[in-house]
Design a protein around this nucleic acid. Structure first.
Lengths: 341, 341
DNA sequence: CTGAAAGCGCTTACAG
DNA sequence: CTGAAAGCGCTTACAG
């Protein structure tokens, strides 16, 4: 039963040539409707399924997209992947997925696997360890287009889908200022990562614009913006001579932990301290008070990456070397920062 | 630049036959070390990368696994996928992913795509709409092994990785009883889905075992166990003449919503009502009080599915028709049910 | 409207 | 230890 029916089998059965069968199945206009009907009927009858590997081999196209993400089980990435799969599916591409586990070594291994023609294009988010992107350069020579999202290379021109982290952070901080906060803290992510650097800069820029003096003691630097780091940052705030009246956190996890620590310390949110997060994780709608945050467009990032990638794959006359697409984010105001109401 | 170097090119360059090159690259024992060294050096020099599509075509093996999940962005599934990718990667398989979006129509389409030889085996979780699994039967004839996890077919014998939902629910309910609860409610999922049916049955069995009368008014039936359905179930409890003193919820979302609604109504958890969830979602460690729940082994489910699948793919003399593997779950006791302390 | 032929890049049984 | 040859299943330029 493992010997599948091929075009040749159909041809023999119908006393036609494999060429004709191939064209009939593919809906070629030169083939008569009568023949098409006969072929399709017989194909159904014999349980013919085309061998897409043979077709890929012959056509030098796999209609397959490779994804490299740090981890699938991080909600942000699973949303991006979902957007990628959705858009790819609609365009008859399929999606092969690899996790770098935030390891540069593994990321390099994956690029080696991917260069064996398995995929027509690649979407990637760099591992946290990646500073030098030389291992991605081979794809240029191989004619395999590449799109990066979120954590993108800074050392070479590449197609990138990003959000404006600086501006989003600026907007978030401005929102706190407009809500009446005068002493605003920031919980920052790793300053080795450009997006967290940009969020810190956006925060600083908003303070400057509205003439609020920058107070370094109100900025808590973390490594991974983890829930636990959020807890210890919150405790540090509690040990300050005076609390801030607003905190912009570079992600939702740290924001949630601050809310919980502060509430346990009987600090009223938002009345005493207003909190804003970043990413619009599901938990931001569940935590009490609900968290004001930035919608970072994860799903759309996946869609846009794929749209751009497919264009690069299919447009042979493309003379654009690289594109950077910046998506609009959105400030979602919820209870954790509702001071004016 | 797009014309890649092939074995033939290497052969010409080194005045050897393609056969020898192939064997040298593949590390065949018959080839002399000197030749191997020469070949590998030249391969490096010319930037040879093997064409894995050609190899797949020739070998009739793709070393690729297909996954069909309802949605990638549901945390449970993203964890399973992560386990699958991890195990597959270690065994030199790659993973192609499809979302059914809980649509039977799309699930059927995906099985059609998958039958074109793209993959050596398939791991799937049925869509919520799927009652009849005939569209998976073709893979038996094609010799493509299949493993299901979580939502598995009941209408035909298949390889399945599951947890013991009945027993887990029994354990959870028993825990409430042992903690002193005498009037225990249950928030149930769709009774069309076997796992939620089993959880309800496990709950009932525990009550029976410990001679607690079953009170149907304490069982809230939901469609999707969503957060919002949890909220309305909680409100229904509040409208009862007397509250239960413990509630076993068939997932964590509904449990979290119950905690929040009850706390707003000034009901003490766990003192007045103890709560147990199911799945050990990240939120269960963040909600206050922390949620007692069942670790459903999502990551391990992915690993085990893949391990079983690869065995089925590679073991040609396998005479086992189908296997069902049940993973042990774990009750994680947290504050929401700590009554004895 | 249909067919014969070539070839995509690999692997492997067979021969030496 | 190495090579010549065949073939995996498709597609398409060319011919009629």
């Amino acid at each position: 039963m493992k010997n599948r029916v091929t075009l040749k089998d159909l041809a023999k059965e119908l006393k036609l040539s494999p060429s004709t069968i191939s064209r009939a199945i593919g809906g070629h206009p030169a083939i008569s409707d009568a023949t098409k009907k006969r072929v399709k009927k017989k194909a159904e009858e014999l349980g013919f399924t085309p061998n897409s590997i043979a077709a890929s081999f012959r056509n030098k196209k796999t209609r397959s997209i490779g994804i490299i993400v740090p981890r699938i089980d991080i909600h942000f990435h699973s949303l991006v992947i979902s957007g990628i799969e959705d858009f790819a599916y609609k365009n008859d591409y399929n999606v092969t997925i690899f996790q770098s586990k935030d390891s540069l070594k593994r990321e390099k291994e994956i690029t080696k696997i991917l260069q064996t023609r398995m995929v027509d294009g690649i979407i990637g988010c760099l591992s946290i360890e990646t500073e030098n992107c030389d291992h991605f350069k081979k794809f240029n020579k191989l004619g395999v287009p590449l799109v990066f999202y979120d954590r993108v290379p800074t050392d070479f021109d590449a197609n990138k889908i990003v959000i404006n982290d600086f501006e989003s952070a600026y907007t978030a901080t401005k929102h706190l200022i407009k809500s009446g906060c005068k002493k605003i803290g920031h919980i920052a992510g790793s300053q080795k990562t450009s997006i967290f650097k940009a969020r810190l800069e956006g925060y600083k820029a908003a303070l400057k614009k509205y003439k609020i003096p920058l107070d370094e003691s109100l900025i808590m630097y973390t490594k991974n913006l983890s829930y636990d780091e959020g807890v210890s940052s919150a405790k540090k705030y509690l040990n300050l001579p005076e609390l801030p009246d607003g905190i912009f956190c570079a992600n939702d996890y740290s924001a949630v932990s601050v809310i919980q620590v502060f509430r346990k310390a009987n600090i009223k949110i938002p009345e005493q301290v207003a909190i804003v997060g970043f990413s619009n994780y599901p938990i931001s709608r569940i935590i009490e008070p609900n968290l004001t945050t930035i919608n970072d467009r994860a799903f759309q990032m996946g869609e846009s990456s794929t749209k751009l990638l497919i264009r690069k794959i299919e447009d042979e006359n493309d003379i654009i070397d690289s594109e950077i697409i910046t998506l609009k984010t959105e400030l979602i105001i919820r209870e954790s920062s509702k001071l004016n109401a």
